[in-house]
């Protein structure tokens, strides 16, 4: 089992809210964990927002798409690490996913596509596709619909660290 040290990642003044590790074998087996984790985290960190219900509803929707993306992308054995941090109205989510080269490429390439011109049209194309839903749709949704700032970096050549900065509620401090 591999554990990746991400504590050294710069937090830029963000304060930690919640974090957990999960064995990837559990995440591979249990689809319902995507729903459980997103609902639980959203409820835990929404209580002091101006409108906790609305905040929790939107945060749960975004987290679920992230967890579903991780679920649908093949993972190596190891620890999946989730952290959520906050600075003012910005919530930062970091996820370290143990994965092989192809999967790291998936995250890195999708983030590139999201930043490229025409990403909005691509998102709608994916969302309304007649074929089986493309696993990129969740990341596109966060970037286009929720205006999330996203980045992906390789960690120790055995994992990828996905960072998502979200502003769900304007003006909350």
């Amino acid at each position: 089992m591999t554990d990746f040290q991400t504590d050294s990642l710069p937090d830029d003044g963000f304060k930690p809210l919640i974090e957990f590790d999960l064995d990837t074998t559990v995440l591979n087996d249990q689809w319902v964990y995507c729903d459980f984790m997103s609902s639980f985290v959203a409820n835990m960190v929404s209580h002091n927002r101006a409108d906790p219900f609305m905040f929790s509803n939107l945060l749960s929707a975004t987290l679920n798409e992230l967890f579903e993306t991780v679920y649908r992308t093949r993972k190596e054995a190891g620890q999946f690490r989730f952290r959520m941090l906050r600075k003012g109205s910005v919530d930062r989510i970091t996820m370290v996913v143990p994965c092989g080269r192809d999967e790291r490429q998936f995250y890195l390439k999708t983030i590139e596509e999201i930043r490229a011109p025409g990403a909005s049209e691509k998102y709608l194309e994916l969302l309304f596709s007649d074929d089986e839903l493309d696993r990129r749709v969740g990341l596109f949704e966060l970037a286009i619909s929720y205006k999330a700032q996203m980045s992906a970096v390789a960690v120790e050549d055995k994992a990828v660290c996905l960072t998502v900065d979200l502003v769900i509620e304007q003006g909350t401090d």
């Binding site: 729903d35 509803n57 749960s60 929707a61 679920n64 798409e65 579903e68 969302l127 309304f128 596709s129 839903l133 749709v137 969740g138 949704e141």
Partner: peptide
């Protein structure tokens, strides 16, 4: 709540 799978199906 609805994920993209459900939304895509409904749409």
């Amino acid at each position: 709540q609805s994920n993209n799978v459900a939304f895509n199906g409904l749409a």
